[in-house]
Amino acid sequence: MNIFRFAGDMTHLISILVLLLKIYATKSCSGISLKTQELYALVFLTRYLDLFTDFISVYNTVMKLVFIASSLAIVWCMRMHGLVKRSYDKELDTFRHYLLVAGCFALAVLVNEKFTFQEIFWAFSIYLEAVAILPQLVLLQRSGNVDNLTGQYIFFLGAYRALYLLNWIYRYFTEVRFSRWIACVSGIVQTGLYADFFYYYFLSWKNNAKLQLPA
């Protein structure tokens, strides 16, 4: 464990807590893409298949359980919770996310570290996580104004993978045979997708103005 990875995991955790706070405090999920949340639940469920077979550390197991439980809770909330469900921007959240699932699974079958059930699903989860934010970014463009908590949620979500990139660079130089190129390339794509969001987020912070994405 290095400081970059720990900071990345904490930033990821913060993003989930900010989202839970937004939904709980405002009893609303307006501006949040249910499709992105469903993709994240799938990412965690397919990545942590080894949750009960391989014990790495208490921290690792606890964090996996937290990520799985929180992502499922958010999807449940947006689908079932009466008050929250009504605030969902159903007509704006129309990204065909099943295409992302199909594409990532096809890629995972072709490009993986080992042609085993667990490794194919691990690669699938890595590819899917890289593009899972797309429905959310599309929804953001369509809904124009972004409330603060949603903006912060997306900012922390993007920042966590950027910290993981530093973690991979650090591990590359400090560990003998460390090669994580599938996660690395996907991480670069994932962080790249946030580039324009980061730009407008920085502008709104600099000008102390409301976050506005160009329509």
Binding site: R5, D9, H12, R47, D50, T53, D54, F55, I56, N60, M63, K64, F67, E113, Q118, W122, Y164, N167, R180, A183
Partner: peptide
Amino acid sequence: LPKGSHHDEL
């Protein structure tokens, strides 16, 4: 790390 799973990251 246990055999097989070389994924120690989240």
